[in-house]
């Protein structure tokens, strides 16, 4: 299935990095992929978002206008994008950051208190983005931790190599988080 993913939140929450994780996983799976960030002042603390396309076919427009996967990390982004999600789409919300209610009933919603979860363990500091990405991967049946590790080894800068294990920890928490409990 084609994924048209929009990840949105504040600058500094790791929106673009979460996008890099997903787009690289798509690449390793042999798919056609694209990654498009918002840029300019938005990167420096304003609202920030990132379009990721993963498909069997060549990507047309890389700008995701109507996502079938929305991952949101703040209230303004949820308010801005919830109406754009395709019917039957998946919405993954950092419920510790978002206080709006989702009124749509034609989308599947997963609420994960990702930012609150990172407070429980110093290793997870700043890892809410990865917890949410982990939840998305679990929802679409992606299981290969080995491939995820390979991607982190590629995208985590050399001077931050120590953070690979922390990221793996965050991914597993996201993958195993039971939203039905």
């Amino acid at each position: 299935m084609d994924h048209e993913i929009l990840i949105a939140g504040f600058g500094g929450q790791g929106i673009l990095f979460a996008g890099k994780l997903l787009v690289n996983l798509g690449l390793y799976e042999g798919k056609e992929v694209s990654w498009l960030p918002s840029y300019g002042p938005e990167m420096r603390g304003g609202t920030c978002n990132c379009s990721v396309c993963i498909s069997d076919d060549p990507i047309g427009s890389p700008l995701v206008v109507n996502p079938n996967v929305l991952i949101v990390m703040n209230t303004p982004s949820l308010d801005k994008f919830i109406g754009k999600v395709q019917p039957n789409g998946l919405v993954i919300v950092d419920s510790s950051m978002v206080d709006s209610e989702i009124e749509r009933t034609d989308v599947r919603v997963c609420k994960v208190p990702a930012t609150a979860l990172t407070d429980t363990d110093p290793d997870l500091k700043g890892g809410a983005n990865i917890i949410l990405a982990g939840k998305f991967l679990a929802e679409c049946g992606f299981k290969s931790e080995e491939m995820i590790r390979k991607v982190f080894e590629k995208i985590v800068p050399p001077h931050k190599k120590g953070l690979i294990e922390n990221n793996m920890k965050a991914i597993k928490i996201g993958m195993n988080y039971d939203t039905n409990a």
């Binding site: 890099k20 787009v23 992929v33 694209s34 498009l36 960030p37 840029y39 990507i59 700008l63």
Partner: peptide
């Protein structure tokens, strides 16, 4: 343009 400059692709 800015879109082609900023996007990542294989």
């Amino acid at each position: 343009d800015g879109l082609l400059g900023q996007m990542m692709e294989p």
